[in-house]
């Protein structure tokens, strides 16, 4: 049985890992991620890259929705802004990709204040609808400022070269995405164990008590919007690079639903849940098409013509199933399993 429970100094409580065994597991995990592209063909690599990008976006949304309790359907808007910030600065203006990535975070972060301020007093459904509107507004703006954005035709995006290293193959792009994913995980873990993360969760759990503790609700909701949109924007830039093309058509509203579905499936508020959920939901259409494939050609045909609709249907179904049967998501399942394992053969 693992035992990392007894600690001698207070500092040990805030460390991210608390045993050698845990560190070894993390190392194994990292090696596994590095080894992944060697096992997969081109299609497999693009699938795991997509999983990683979705995981980054979901971790971003998790800050706002999972921790702070503010439901948002504005995910797409900030992805689009991030993608265009990157594409315009790097492709149109020739700025270095590293600056492009920074802008892909900063631009959506500040834009989110514009969405955040009017929604400060809104909750639940009203907030969801207001944030949804931001997606339409951003799309409209992209079409409006076609001098900058190239309007509906979009901007072609090359694979980036960072500090002289060209991420020009699919495997290399995966490593780039995985590395940014790792940075995102660390940033989220750090936020989570800080006064900022605690303030977010305090607002979600009891905003009145949070205010009595000196948390400025308006400021912290905006911080949550900004931190969330920063990460979501970067996922948008990565998605643009992944697609080689940034257009508003590349970012359908379904992405916002998908992001929420990922959090619900993974387990609201959990960083690991966001990652597990992304792997599960991005993998789901593949599993489905494999199953449909077993029913022969016509079934397969049906699936490829209605791919978008079927995806939407699947997400809806999964959301309902999880909310109904496993509200704590995959992380909840994992914790139940872990408890059963440590306590076996006892019942409690």
């Amino acid at each position: 049985m693992r035992s990392g429970y007894f600690k001698e100094t207070v500092a040990e409580h805030i460390n991210l890992t608390d045993s050698t065994l845990q560190r070894i597991w993390i190392l194994i995990g990292l090696i596994f991620v590095v080894a992944l592209p060697f096992y997969f063909g081109l299609y497999g690599i693009s699938l795991i890259t997509l999983m990683a990008i979705s995981a980054i976006g979901a971790m971003g949304l998790n800050i706002l929705t999972g921790w702070t309790g503010q439901i948002s359907l504005g995910q797409t808007a900030f992805m689009v802004l991030g993608a265009y910030a990157y594409a315009i600065s790097v492709e149109s203006w020739g700025w270095p990709p590293i600056i492009g990535f920074a802008l892909a975070g900063i631009v959506p972060a500040f834009a989110s204040v514009l969405v955040g301020v009017p929604s400060l007093r809104l909750k639940g459904l009203y907030l969801a609808i207001t944030t949804l509107a931001s997606a339409f507004i951003v799309n409209q703006l992209v079409l409006e400022f076609d001098g900058l954005t190239n309007g509906a035709s979009g901007i072609f995006v090359n694979r980036p070269t960072i500090f002289g290293y060209a991420f020009d193959t699919d495997a290399k792009l995966f490593y780039l995405v995985a590395f940014i994913g790792l940075l995102t995980v660390l940033a989220c873990l750090n936020l989570r164990r800080s006064r900022i993360g605690r303030a977010f969760i305090a607002i979600r759990d009891n905003d009145n008590a949070a205010r009595v503790m000196g948390i400025d609700l308006r400021a912290y909701k905006l911080y949550a919007f900004m931190a969330s949109s920063f990460i979501v924007g970067i996922s948008g830039a990565l998605y643009g690079i992944f697609l080689s093309f940034v257009t508003i058509d590349g970012f359908p509203l379904l992405l916002a639903i998908e992001a929420l579905a990922i959090l619900i499936v993974g387990g609201m508020g959990s960083i690991a849940g966001a990652i597990l959920g992304a792997i599960f939901l991005v993998g789901l259409p593949e599993i489905t098409s494999a199953i449909f494939g077993m029913f022969g050609e016509t079934a397969k045909q049906f699936l490829s013509t209605g791919a978008h609709e079927i995806k939407g249907l699947l997400y809806g179904l999964v959301i309902i199933l999880f909310l109904r049967l496993q509200p704590h998501g995959l992380m909840g399942l994992w914790q139940d399993a872990k408890r059963a394992w440590t306590l076996w053969p006892l019942r409690y």
Partner: peptide
């Protein structure tokens, strides 16, 4: 909370 000063960026 109020007796601590860490900003969002420092926290991350």
């Amino acid at each position: 909370h109020w007796q601590m000063k860490t900003s969002v960026i420092e926290a991350a």
